[in-house]
């Protein structure tokens, strides 16, 4: 049973960091959605906001780790230029572009993933800051709460696009 350093980093980037962000989303969404005075008692809001603050900051941190590990560790292996007559299966970008049937995985999938994925940590940080700043008052700030809820959803969607294409790309042209 062997795992190369590259495979290990790919797993850490996508399956561990990325998945933690995506998996934690449901909890954060439920927390933000139901943070309303008519649904939760004052004591409930205080208890919930502590969890939300911690959860959203952890999510923002994990999102940053995911994009930095993706861009600066995994991506260079993906886009490395092969020497002449090299086995392209070790050079995912070149491998995908070598055939018309797989080229769109790079020109659409990777190109979208690598840019939009960076939206997640920026938006998640804004969400975490606003939740921490307002504290229990956020339950009474309906417009801000709704804005933060939608920013959180967009951050998740951006991470989802990145994660989904990452999974497909690693299946079709794995980093080895």
């Amino acid at each position: 049973m062997q795992v190369t350093v590259r495979e290990l980093w790919t797993v850490l980037h996508g399956l561990i960091f990325g998945s933690v962000f995506l998996a934690a989303f449901a909890g954060g969404l439920a927390g933000l959605y139901s943070l309303r005075p008519e649904l939760v008692t004052v004591a409930g809001v205080r208890e919930r906001i502590r969890r939300l603050t911690a959860g959203t900051w952890v999510m923002a941190l994990v999102a940053w780790i995911t994009v930095f590990s993706g861009t600066y560790i995994v991506y260079p292996w993906y886009r490395a230029r092969p020497p002449e007559n090299a086995d392209l299966s070790f050079f995912p970008r070149s491998f995908l572009l070598s055939k018309p049937t797989t080229a769109a995985w790079h020109t659409f999938g990777m190109e979208w993933k690598e840019h939009v994925g960076w939206f997640a940590p920026i938006l998640a940080t804004a969400v975490a800051f606003v939740v921490a700043y307002y504290g229990p008052q956020l339950a009474r700030e309906e417009r801000v709460r709704r804005t933060v809820l939608w920013l959180f959803i967009v951050a998740f969607a951006a991470a989802g696009v990145a994660g989904l294409f990452g999974a497909f790309l690693n299946k079709i042209a794995p980093i080895r």
Binding site: A126, E141, V148
Partner: peptide, 27 residues
């Protein structure tokens, strides 16, 4: 408790929007 002003939250939200717009624009 005295309600917190919305300014700092507005700054965080708008700044994040500016950041993602700049990434899109440069792309």
């Amino acid at each position: 408790e005295k309600p917190k002003p919305s300014g700092p939250a507005a700054a965080a939200i708008l700044a994040a929007a500016v950041g993602v717009f700049v990434i899109g624009l440069l792309t």
